[in-house]
């Protein structure tokens, strides 16, 4: 009980009630929703989760990564490869996945931060690492090369080996998204989280008041990479296949960044709101595209929507929405 009270902190009761109701609805969702809507909800939760993970590095610590597909891809490949080749189940495999992605994050971070690459330069470094790895995996036999890695599709639910249908994966991604939300909230209310915000705002001033800047940035990228790799593991076992062309693609990295940017960078609800908006738009435009039957029309609408959002809500949808709702997400 005291744990829950600490978790709630000073959040107003109104928000706590809404969150409670939302959580209850989400827990009941598989019973309430049809197959299609459940799959949409899964997508939303997936993007909310990876968005939350990316937001730690960019929204909190202020370091722009456009190569997060690297960590998701590594995570997916490690866990799937261990299962495929040696029958090591994903619950054990995810430790290896997290470790490898964490090390990858540490390498990218150390090289980038050590040589004080900032902004665009750091972003390009992250892209370069993801692309480099993509081509390497194209040629790596263990991972199936460019032909991809396939897991056997099984319909019987087997929690130990993460085999099963959408409902299993729904609850997994729900747990991940909820866990990431709670973790991020706790981080923001910790010294580390406050240090990240300070670094984001002005690294030199932060260092002058005793913030160990390099160490804090390193922790941010390692946590962010590790969380992202879990999404990769989930992804691999949900879709049962992995290709370097998609797993490490720049498009995948960009996808990861969109929900928090659209929703509101550095906020807790931003990635969630952004995921709802983006997935909703995506689905609506898919339907529209099916009606219009023009190749690319779905993406054209999507691009237009992004344009409108970035032009009119450059700080994201959530800060504006929160204002309208009379809520103000203040950090503690």
């Amino acid at each position: 009980m005291s744990f829950i009270r600490r978790l709630a902190g000073n959040a107003p009761p109104r928000i706590l009630w809404s969150l409670g109701v939302l959580l209850a609805l989400l827990l009941l969702a598989p019973a309430l929703l049809g197959k299609y809507w459940l799959s949409v909800l899964i997508l939303i939760l997936y993007f909310a989760y990876v968005g939350q993970a990316w937001n730690i590095l960019m929204g909190f610590a202020g370091q722009l990564s456009l190569g997060h597909a690297l960590y998701a891809g590594l995570g997916g490949y490690i866990a799937a490869g261990l299962y495929f080749h040696y029958g090591i189940g994903p619950w054990a495999g995810l430790f290896a996945a997290v470790a490898v992605a964490g090390v990858a994050g540490a390498i990218v971070g150390y090289l980038g931060f050590r040589f004080s690459l900032a902004g665009v330069y750091f972003a390009l470094l992250t892209i370069a690492f993801a692309e480099f790895t993509r081509v390497a995996f194209d040629h790596w036999g263990w991972a199936g090369g460019s032909g991809g890695l396939f897991l056997k599709v099984e319909h019987a639910t087997d929690i130990v080996n993460l085999r099963g249908g959408p409902v299993l994966f729904y609850y997994l991604i729900l747990a991940l998204a909820a866990g990431a939300f709670i973790l991020c909230r706790a981080l923001l209310r910790s010294r580390l989280g406050q240090y990240w915000l300070a670094i984001r705002e002005d690294a030199e001033a932060a260092q002058a008041v005793g913030v160990p800047v390099l160490r804090c940035k390193m922790i941010a990228i390692v946590i962010s990479a590790a969380l992202t790799s879990l999404a990769g593991v989930w992804n691999a076992f949900y879709y049962n296949n992995l290709f370097p062309e998609t797993a490490f693609a720049m498009g995948r990295s960009i996808e990861i960044t969109l929900a928090p940017i659209i929703g509101g960078l550095g906020t807790l609800f931003g990635p969630i709101v952004g995921a709802v908006v983006l997935t909703g738009l995506g689905e609506a435009f898919t339907d529209l595209g099916d009606v219009l039957r023009i190749p690319g029309i779905k993406q054209i609408f999507y691009g237009l929507a992004l344009l409108v959002i970035v032009a009119y809500r450059p700080a994201g949808v959530w800060p504006w929405l929160a204002d309208k709702l009379g809520l103000k997400e203040r950090q503690p």
Binding site: V120, I254, T257, L258, I261, Y302, L306, L307, V310, A311
Partner: peptide
């Protein structure tokens, strides 16, 4: 930078 990135990404799409 992230806002510029999003804008040009939309243009690219």
């Amino acid at each position: 930078e992230h806002q510029q990135f999003l804008l040009l990404l939309a243009v690219a799409i």
